[in-house]
C-alpha cells in the first residue's frame, strides 16, 4: 500500500474515528501507567509508549515532520536522559507515606473531608479537566476551516522558519546551546574545596601557631 493510499484511508471520517479511539485508549492507559506505577524506572520506559502514541496522533493529524521530530526528540532523547538520571539517582524513597488510619468512629462527613484533603491534587486536576472540557466543547465554538491539508508541509514549515520566524529560530538555537552548557556546568561533580587551597591553609595555620607560641613566650 503506498503512502497516498494510506493518507486517503486515514482521511475517511470513520477510519479516523476508530484510529483516534484506539490511540487514545493506548495513550490513556499508558499515561495512567506512567503516573501510577510504583517502580519509577518502569514508568520511565512506559513514557516511550506515551510519546509513541502521541506521535501516532500527529500522523493522524497529518503532521508527518512533527511526528518524526516527536519520535526523535521525545521518545528517544528525553526518555534516555530521564532513564539515565534515574540510574544516577537512587529512586528508592526512604519511607512510604504512612497511611492515616481510617477511624471507624469518625462520622461519614468527616471521613469524606479527610479523603478530600488527602486527595486534593486529584480533585484539582479533575476539576480543571471538567472546566477545560466545558470551555472546549459545544458546537461552532472553533472556526474550523474545511480545507484539505497542504501537500508540501515541510516546505511551508521550512520557509516560515527561515523567513518569518527566523529570529525566534536563532534565539532557540542560542537557548539550546545555553541550556546544554548550563546542564553540563550544573551536573559536573566539582569538589567543594580547591585542592590547591589545602596546603596553603595548612601553612597559614602553622604560621599562626608559631606566632601564638612566640607571643606566649
Amino acid at each position: 500500500m503506498s503512502y497516498d493510499n494510506l493518507t486517503a484511508l486515514l482521511s475517511l471520517p470513520v477510519m479516523e474515528t476508530w484510529m483516534f479511539y484506539v490511540l487514545s485508549a493506548l495513550a490513556i492507559c499508558l499515561g495512567v501507567g506512567v503516573l501510577h506505577d510504583r517502580v519509577v524506572i518502569r514508568s520511565g520506559f512506559i513514557l516511550i509508549g506515551v510519546f509513541g502514541t502521541i506521535a501516532g496522533f500527529f500522523l493522524l493529524l497529518s503532521a508527518q515532520f512533527l511526528a518524526m521530530a516527536q519520535i526523535m526528540i521525545y521518545a528517544v532523547a528525553i526518555t534516555l536522559v530521564v532513564v539515565i538520571a534515574l540510574m544516577l539517582t537512587n529512586p528508592r524513597l526512604e519511607a512510604e507515606r504512612t497511611a492515616e488510619p481510617d477511624d471507624d468512629n469518625m462520622p461519614a462527613m468527616a471521613k469524606f473531608f479527610a479523603s478530600c484533603k488527602r486527595n486534593m491534587t486529584l480533585w484539582i486536576s479533575a476539576f480543571s479537566f471538567i472546566t477545560l472540557y466545558v470551555a472546549i466543547s459545544g458546537e461552532n465554538r472553533w472556526p474550523v476551516a474545511g480545507l484539505p491539508v497542504a501537500k508540501d508541509q515541510v516546505k511551508v514549515i521550512g520557509e516560515a522558519l527561515t523567513t518569518t520566524y527566523s529570529i525566534p529560530f536563532e534565539f532557540s538555537s542560542v537557548l539550546l546551546l545555553a541550556a546544554l552548557m548550563g546542564a553540563i556546568m550544573i551536573a559536573k561533580n566539582e569538589p567543594l574545596h580547591d585542592p590547591d587551597e589545602e596546603p596553603k591553609k595548612a601553612i597559614e595555620d602553622s604560621k599562626t601557631q608559631e606566632n601564638n607560641l612566640a607571643l606566649t613566650r
Binding site: 512533527l66 521530530a69 516527536q70 526528540i73 521525545y74 532523547a77 528525553i78 536522559v81 530521564v82 539515565i84 538520571a85 544516577l88 539517582t89 532557540s172 537557548l175 539550546l176 541550556a179 546544554l180 548550563g182 546542564a183 553540563i184 550544573i186 551536573a187
Partner: peptide, 17 residues
C-alpha cells in the same frame, strides 16, 4: 519541542545536583 528539550536537560541536571 525545543524548549522542552532544554527544560529536560537543565531540570535533570538540577535533580542530579
Amino acid at each position: 519541542l525545543t524548549v522542552a528539550a532544554a527544560e529536560a536537560a537543565v531540570g535533570l541536571a538540577i535533580v542530579l545536583q
